[in-house]
């Protein structure tokens, strides 16, 4: 074989090895992306539904409190108007005021607990769907950029928030595939 041909063959082999090497090691690189968690959370349909549900519950509870408050105010006006008040009326007023304060405290605690439960439910489903997105699209890692400093800098082309948002909403609404 002529030396020129040997050189050509060697160059081709080197090129093939080089391309193969790049391909092999390239494919072994972890696929990484990130999502802006606040945006994802805010754009999640389930969050909007539970937010509305929480507001409705709070509104109903406030209506109960307002009703007691109105009765309390009416009783208070009566007590103010009469100088010689019936001790029974005074006791009734005090009982009602205690009842109002107890209910207000209870509702405030219940609202807080409900908000925490809803938040936990939302994150549970969000994490599930992001995990499924990662598996279906071959991601090794999907980081959450939440502004806490866990992810200090990342290129915009690694931001998959919009795609993930569409995916999680489809999954939440019952669709099984993309």
């Amino acid at each position: 074989m002529k030396p020129e041909r040997i050189n050509t063959v060697l160059i081709i082999i080197c090129m093939v090895l080089l391309v193969g090497g790049f391909w092999y090691f390239g494919s072994k690189q972890p696929k990484i992306a990130y999502v802006k968690t606040a945006m994802l959370y805010d754009g999640f349909d389930y969050k909007h539904e539970l937010e509305k549900k929480l507001e409705d519950t709070k509104y109903q509870r406030k209506a109960i409190l307002d009703s007691i408050l109105m009765q309390l105010q009416a009783l208070s006006e009566q007590l103010k108007a009469n100088k010689n008040n019936d001790p029974e009326k005074i006791e009734k007023f005090q009982q009602m005021r205690s009842q109002y304060l107890a209910k207000e405290k209870q509702f405030s605690e219940d609202n807080q607990a409900l908000a925490e439960k809803y938040s936990s439910d939302i994150w549970k489903q969000l994490n599930q769907y992001v995990t499924e997105y990662g598996h279906q699209h071959g991601f090794t890692y999907i980081f959450g950029a939440d502004g806490s400093g866990a992810l200090m800098a990342a290129s915009n082309d690694k931001d998959i928030t919009e795609d993930v948002k569409i995916f999680v909403n489809r999954r939440y609404n019952g669709k099984i595939s993309d």
Partner: peptide
């Protein structure tokens, strides 16, 4: 079971 609202769609 603390799963929240679960939606499943039959296409």
């Amino acid at each position: 079971l603390n799963s929240g609202i679960v939606k499943i769609t039959i296409n």
